[in-house]
Design a protein around this nucleic acid. Sequence first.
DNA 1: ATCTTATAGTACCGATCCCTTGCTATATCA
DNA 2: TGATATAGCAAGGGATCGGTACTATAAGAT
Lengths: 177, 177
Amino acid sequence: MLLLTRKTDYALLALASLARQTPAGASARGLAERLKLPLPVLRNILKQLTSRGVLKSTRGTRGGYRLARSPQEITLAQLLEAIEGPMRLARCCSVPEGEEEAECKLEESCLIRGNMRRVHASLMQFLDEVTLAQLAEEDSSAELKPGKGARPTPLVTLKDAQSYPRLVDQPDVRDPS
Amino acid sequence: MLLLTRKTDYALLALASLARQTPAGASARGLAERLKLPLPVLRNILKQLTSRGVLKSTRGTRGGYRLARSPQEITLAQLLEAIEGPMRLARCCSVPEGEEEAECKLEESCLIRGNMRRVHASLMQFLDEVTLAQLAEEDSSAELKPGKGARPTPLVTLKDAQSYPRLVDQPDVRDPS
DNA sequence: ATCTTATAGTACCGATCCCTTGCTATATCA
DNA sequence: TGATATAGCAAGGGATCGGTACTATAAGAT
């Protein structure tokens, strides 16, 4: 059972690289070469991340991509949602926009709906406490500081776990090399 | 992004149903009717869960399936692993049996390997604290007790998150009807 | 102005995996 | 011996993922 797709792998790698050189940016080609990723694939990913508001792009000769916000303000939950779409644990968990109540025909007869949603909420909370800055942190390769985003994630009462903070634009603070 | 497959959905549903009537068992047909699941699919799932040691089966006229252990002793991590195979967050996280170190060609050049593994470890720890008993609990539909498995899961130092407790057989304690 | 670089958008193919179903064999009980 | 129920194996349709190609547009350099 592999949770993340290859696309997500590539995206996180690229984002981590960009995070380390914030606020400067990098071109798709440069990133692909440095990270040894296939350029066409990476291009599509960067494009998508831009349209979802995670990255900002600049065209032209000295153009490239850079983070739209500081790495500390970007959480793993936001990134996964930007890359793979709204996240659900099971089919009965949180439908994006007030659509029909999940595609689970069992509905009231379902034994585990409520509890599944709680697990889902805990999971989302956890992912929302891991920041891109933490992911991109230099690997001490052994010990690790529990850091700021270290709040627990027990089974909590589910409220509106489906409405997570979306990404919004911020004023441009460009800095080309 | 849907984390759990339909197969897993069905499996958890069936397991929850069995958990509620422990230590008695149920036949595949009975479960399928009660849960409104397609019988052939459910059959395959139950067979697999049996071969992985989660369930015990009895053949014959009054046969059926029942949990191999008490619901409190079965964790979500164990179940997911039994259903979907060894779990990894990314390709660089924990390879099952001392195989080659993940299928990630980046290896030492990978920026996020170490931190990804830590996230993976936290996730596994979380899943290992949710029990089948909790999942099968009657849904109070509103509030929820944080319960026993409520220990947090911050970023912890990764040790051997890849070797999680496997399921083993236990003495039979059958009780048909 | 024009050329080069780089992103934006769209469409497409191939491979893989998920989901489902079917059949035959075996074991247990009446 | 017959009915019931699991065990094991196999296969096919469909959706999704991974990867590629092509054209359009924008910004900077010469």
